[in-house]
Amino acid sequence: MPKAVAYHRPATLEEALTLLADPGRVILGGGTVVNTPGGDLVEVVDLQALGLTRITMDGERARCGAMTTLGHLVDHDGVPSLIRDAARRQSPSALRNQATIGGVIAGADPESVLLGALAVSAATVELTGPAGSEWIGLGDVLAQGTGGRIITAVEFATTGGGVIVATGRTPADTPIVAAVARRDGDAVTIALTGVAGTVVLVDPARLDELDPPGDFRGSAAYRTHLATVLTGRALAEVT
């Protein structure tokens, strides 16, 4: 376990912001990442008392509090099946009931299928800091971080339909590369995992610009190949 030298559970957002003004404090989402071994001595700030767990539907968008667990996303009938499926693939059951959507965004894992699904669903992220709240595009948050602010909510589109096409060692393995595609009317968006430092939205015509990092599960050349194959399939399958 990390050395959490203090545990805070603020009752209000204001209290949380005050606590987090100290750079030695980190936000505790569900704990599935923060509470694993390694790292520095930290004070953790648990946001569970802030009520950031509601899922609401507003026209063509859904809004989730940042502390919504992936398990609740999976179980929610109003959430699009693409997001639910991606949330299910993201973590095994027990971790899914702890891991939060805010934590997944803050983690910015380049192999996250859920981030891919959010990216193609035009997700925006509410960042709250001492100066107030601001909605930022998911891609900017993944690329630039939260700037020390709290992720308080996430919004994404509920229209259209999508597919996840992936290659892994086994069907449930974290994909080496996954293509997530969503069609909304005539518009199709595609995100790829495992081909860059973050999950990226891609233009199918410009896949040759990718420069993936390689590892033991897939070299750069192989990941580039998968990007092409899986993007093609995702385009064909997303109807």
């Binding site: 959490a4 545990y7 509470n35 971790l95």
Partner: peptide
Amino acid sequence: AVLVDRRLVSADVILAAQ
């Protein structure tokens, strides 16, 4: 894994404080 509020969670990565 144990149940917290009747849902399965992994007691390895949840702080007792949580």
